[in-house]
Design a protein around this nucleic acid. Structure first.
Length: 734
DNA sequence: CGTCGTCTTATTTTT
DNA sequence: TAAGACGACG
């Protein structure tokens, strides 16, 4: 690199950007939408833009609002911005929608009827609270499951609808006996009563405040000169409203996203937000990032071809930026059943391992959680280290939630849900009857349970009075202790002196030692925070799976969990009609849902750098019995010249194409797929077409009669197994 | 208050 | 099939 004497050296953060990326970084004024395809350097653009705003002197760190969906993304951005600035970035308004809103809401808590130390409830607490509300309203929670009612309430919140804003037409009139709005209203009242907010409230309350309080809004307008938003395609309506309100000030809002990766509609995300951007923000610059630095040409071609089947896209075509235009074709494996699928994939991974590939660069991405099981079993059997990403979280464990409840009561005595959880834990002889009395009293006098307990303790009888008195005295003492001894020592003392630790020490179950270890870990984590409030906020909003990405393991996870990740080698099993695209999704969401499923497939494919292998099984065990399945329509939407079909699918194509395309020169099929798989692979398409009424035999389902023929897909009514849709080649004429 | 048995239900879950 | 939730019962 020769130094130019004329031009000053470019800042490092601009130097390695391509022209589009550079435009996305340097277009600072006015609204900007950056359509960033998978692997096109989105994060680099976002952080470079952030750095550019600061280093060009356009704003101080505290004048930039940077919003992400995940804590991980926020952390990453913070780290990279700090690195670019060459100093720790302080005073940033950088975080998730929820953490930023929590920060705002604590400042303005009184304005919405909360105290600044309000508790942020998790799903479990939400449901418990709603259940109480439903019981009070006389709604049978068996007929109308609590999570379902909660789902409706959440959807209202996602759409920025307070109970007052919900029109009766929008509340499904039969649902919950027509009392949905009423339940919503009661639930919100209960939240205020226990000084708590749920996740949805964080956004809803702040947005409502910005909508109705011009002074507060003007304050934030003065404050934020630039707004940056990541993953814009996943915003829901209330998040959009929140952003739009805040952006009315400076108009400098930059949203980065990819409409083709919108996969969270079922959580309230509205892909329309990104599709409508130009209308919502007039004069917006639209910048497309289409140079993909991640995947090989065949993978990109497959992904692009597939996603082109969607309508209503903003339209972008990924191009390979690197010179790696060679690359292996995407393999499409057809297998007999799900066990064979696990064996085949396990076998290939073993081969990769022998070839010296890193297991941490291999991922199995499934549509639904239950699919992981077959892989786990297989990997255990053949000794492949793996990790299932997602699953039970640290803070969802019972002992952690219990300990958290103690801390919540310590910090915020009005937290009824927390108090209820620990009042008799460990057992203190304070049973249902006592609690019911307290509830009645609390409700009647509109005071928290804790205050009720204090008021009623002296009038209780013997054991209850003693135990309750001791607990309450202890809490008073612990609260006094915090100032002197500090929150870490106090919490440690609280867990011991309350008898909670002993409860687990005396527990003989095999999990008990682990739980004690988790509790110690929790207390250790407490030391990272200045005070209890900070820690509680962290756990509610930020704490995530502490599974360190340790060592050499294959990752197994859902497609949703894989968004944002990349691997050299990606396996995509279960591409079958019904599973993927998922029948249930289709039933609920129709054509829109199909497009979202397709986007999910697109996300899956674009996770792969070098190799992608799709597979489908002809038989899958779902619940009790075997289901026949036919290959996913998405397989037929792949570009034939970029894929290599192996197995029954190949045999089928072999009819149309002259050479048997499953034959890989120089590679014996037996090595490529296991013997069992070869059975399937070798099974040719049938040349004697079946007709309606034919009696047929199937290996798993026995005898049946053909009821419908659609090319090679036939419906059969089996004598024992009932109606099935399957490929004709698995049937024999009987 | 705890245990046992029955019933239900089974996609995805960034916060 | 299998796990989790809930209610009845001891």
């Amino acid at each position: 690199m020769a130094d130019s004497p004329i031009h000053p050296p470019e800042p490092a953060y601009l130097a390695r950007l391509n022209p589009e990326q550079r435009r996305a970084v340097e277009t600072l004024d006015g609204p900007v939408l950056v359509l960033a395809g998978a692997g096109t350097g989105k994060t680099r653009v976002l952080t470079a833009r952030f750095a550019h705003i600061l280093l060009s002197g356009r704003a101080w760190p505290g004048q930039v609002l940077a919003v992400t969906f995940t804590n991980k993304a926020a952390r990453e951005m913070a780290g990279r911005v700090a690195a670019m600035l060459d100093r720790p970035a302080e005073g940033l308004w950088l975080g998730t929608f929820h953490s930023l809103c929590a920060r705002m809401l604590r400042r303005h808590a009184e304005a919405v009827g909360l105290k600044p130390n309000f508790t942020i409830l998790d799903t479990d607490d939400q449901n418990r609270l709603l259940k109480q509300v439903m019981e009070a309203a006389g709604i049978d929670h068996r007929r109308w499951p609590v999570p379902a009612v909660m789902g409706h309430i959440q959807r209202f919140k996602d759409r920025g609808l307070t109970p007052d804003r919900v029109t009766p037409a929008e509340a499904d009139s039969d649902f919950a006996g027509g009392k949905l709005i009423e339940l919503y209203r009661d639930y919100q009242a209960r939240l205020l009563a226990v000084n708590a907010a749920d996740f949805g409230d964080l956004l809803l309350s702040v947005t409502e405040l910005l909508r109705t309080d011009a002074a507060v809004l003007a304050d934030y307008h003065r404050k934020f000169r630039f707004i940056l938003v990541d993953e814009y395609q996943d915003t829901n309506l209330v998040q959009y409203l929140w952003l739009r309100l805040l952006a009315q000030g400076s108009k400098n809002i930059c949203c980065v996203g990819d409409d083709d990766q919108s996969i969270y509609s079922w959580r309230g995300a509205e892909i329309e937000n990104i599709l409508r951007f130009e209308k919502d923000f007039p004069g917006a610059a639209i910048i497309r990032l289409e140079r993909n630095y991640r995947s090989t040409a065949p993978i990109l071609a497959a992904a692009s071809h597939l996603i082109a089947n969607n309508e209503g896209r903003l339209g972008k075509t990924l191009r390979a930026a690197g010179n790696d235009t060679a690359g292996e074709k995407v393999q499409v494996l057809s297998l007999w059943d799900s066990d064979e699928e696990a064996r085949a994939i396990g076998g290939r991974i073993e081969q990769f391992r022998r070839d010296g590939e890193q297991l941490s660069e291999i991922a199995v991405l499934v549509r639904a959680g239950f699919q992981t099981r077959a892989f786990e079993e297989r990997f255990v059997a053949i000794g492949i280290p793996y990790r299932v990403v997602g699953g039970a979280k640290f803070y969802e464990r019972q002992e952690i939630r219990d300990a958290m409840a103690y801390m919540r009561v310590l910090h915020q005595p009005a937290d009824d849900l927390a108090f209820e959880r620990i009042i008799n834990l460990p057992r203190r002889g304070i049973g249902d009857t006592t609690l019911r009395t307290f509830h009645a009293h609390a409700r009647a006098h509109r005071v928290p349970l804790y205050a009720t307990a204090e008021a009623l303790a002296p009038s209780q009888k013997g054991r209850v009075r003693e135990a309750l008195g001791e607990l309450l005295r202890n809490f008073t003492r612990w609260r006094e202790q915090i100032a002197g001894a500090g929150h870490v020592a106090t919490v440690a003392a609280m867990l011991d002196e309350s008898g909670y630790t002993d409860m687990w020490k005396n527990d003989k179950s095999p999990e008990a030692p682990g739980r004690l270890e988790n509790l110690r870990e929790l207390v250790r984590a407490l030391a990272d925070f200045e005070n209890l409030a900070g820690f509680l906020e962290h756990v509610a909003l930020v704490m995530e799976n502490d599974e360190a990405a340790d060592g050499e393991r294959v990752s197994v996870m859902t497609l949703h969990a894989a968004k944002g990740l990349e691997f050299d080698t990606v396996f995509l099993p279960g591409w079958e009609e019904g599973l993927f695209p998922n029948q249930r999704a289709l039933d609920e969401g129709g054509g829109r849902a199909l497009e979202e499923e397709r986007r999910l497939a697109y996300v899956g494919l674009t996770r792969a750098r070098r190799r992608a292998t799709i597979s489908c099984a002809a038989n899958r065990r779902i619940y009790a019995n075997w289901q026949a399945s036919i290959p996913s329509r998405f397989i037929d939407e792949l570009p034939e010249d970029q894929i290599m079909r192996i197995g029954a699918e190949a045999a089928r194509r072999a009819h149309a194409v002259s050479a048997p395309s499953w034959f890989v020169p120089g590679q014996r099929p037996g090595r490529l797929i296991e013997a069992g798989a070869w059975e399937t692979a070798a099974r040719p398409a049938r040349d004697d077409a079946l007709a309606v009424g034919d009696r047929v035999f199937h290996q798993k389902f026995g005898y049946g009669r053909v009821t419908l023929v659609d090319g090679e897909k036939v419906d059969v009514s089996f004598e024992k197994a009932g109606e099935k849709k399957l490929l004709d080649r698995f049937l024999e004429k009987a």
